[in-house]
Nucleic acid binder design. Structure first.
Lengths: 174, 174
DNA sequence: TCCAGCCGGTTTCCCTTTGGAACCGATCGT
DNA sequence: ACGATCGGTTCCAAAGGGAAACCGGCTGGA
């Protein structure tokens, strides 16, 4: 299977990665969250080539993660801003940063720290249950088929195929 | 800058991506969380080539995200299991899945649902402050230089360089 | 008027990474 | 002795990425 086809998978992780899973893309988004908006700032901060940056920004705009907003006319110039869809990537970014802090420390401590202004303290983001507020641990969460995969399973059965033929179903049957 | 050098950056997101930011890697980890352990199961589920899978698994083992455990001798066979470092990627995986659910739905609802067994309800993972427990919003969190970047800034000043010459510092000065 | 510089790109060329398919080798069941 | 199982490796063509030069509107200064 080609990487380009992963967005065809009935899996939210695969679909998410089809948008933010390419080289440089999450780093562009990190910079966007830190306030970077202009082409040449992104390029300097990231050390990515103009070529690649142009392509990645274009794709993110296409996908609705960034939006191009004019900041001057004559010559017409745009800057790139996070949309609501882009802002919704904040948890992904913070969990990545937290994992890097916890497991990729090179003996100097964390590169950045985060102060939660509503409570005034330095925060270490954690992932919690929307219903009870407890920290989510993998062994306490049971994944089960959702509507989208159940629909696929039904179609397969009607067509006389085994559920085992469909990777996402075989895998999630555990 | 070459992609291979991103782990040199003083940034936890970049360091994390140097381990889990390559094509297929997060999908391998997703499957590992769903119980996949053997080479050929990964290959069938993912549709990745054996070649690439072999390389990625090797790298993840090298980085301490997976560990090779023998499950039979004669012929000697290993399976791949998540280490503590690998299990710590759970928040990254769940936030990616949540974003995919929220923004990449293709009209069929979610592929998978998650039941939090300790409270018995279907959960939508959210990211919260370790100190006050409130949901973290980007506009309420102030990033500031941590020990690792402060050390870099000092070194630069001693060497007579401008802080502006160092991308991570220029960026985070906002 | 001409020229340099700013900004946000595009083009070109070459090298690295990825994908597909075939092959390998130890062992087991029959 | 033969095929199947499992976890790979080898080889080659195609796709993706990196470095550097070029482009094209516009502005400000000489």
């Amino acid at each position: 299977m080609r990487w380009n086809d992963i967005d065809q998978q009935v899996c939210s992780v695969a679909r998410a990665l089809s948008v933010v899973g390419e080289r440089w893309t999450m780093l562009i988004i990190r910079d966007a969250f830190l306030g970077t908006r202009r082409f040449d700032r992104f390029q300097e901060n990231l050390g990515i080539t103009r070529h690649r940056l142009s392509e990645r920004l274009g794709k993110l705009v296409e996908q609705g993660v960034l939006i191009k907003v004019p900041y001057q006319e004559r010559p017409l110039r745009h800057e790139y801003r996070l949309t609501r869809k882009g802002l919704a990537l904040y948890p992904v970014l913070m969990t990545l940063a937290r994992w890097g802090d916890d497991w990729m420390d090179q003996g100097q401590g964390a590169p950045m720290e985060y102060v939660h202004m509503t409570c005034g303290r330095q925060t270490r983001p954690e992932i919690t249950c929307s219903e009870c507020g407890e920290v989510l641990k993998p062994e306490e969460v049971k994944p089960q088929l959702g509507p989208a995969l159940l629909a696929v399973a039904e179609q397969l059965e009607e067509a006389g195929h085994s559920v085992e033929d469909f990777p996402a179903l075989a895998r999630s049957g555990l």
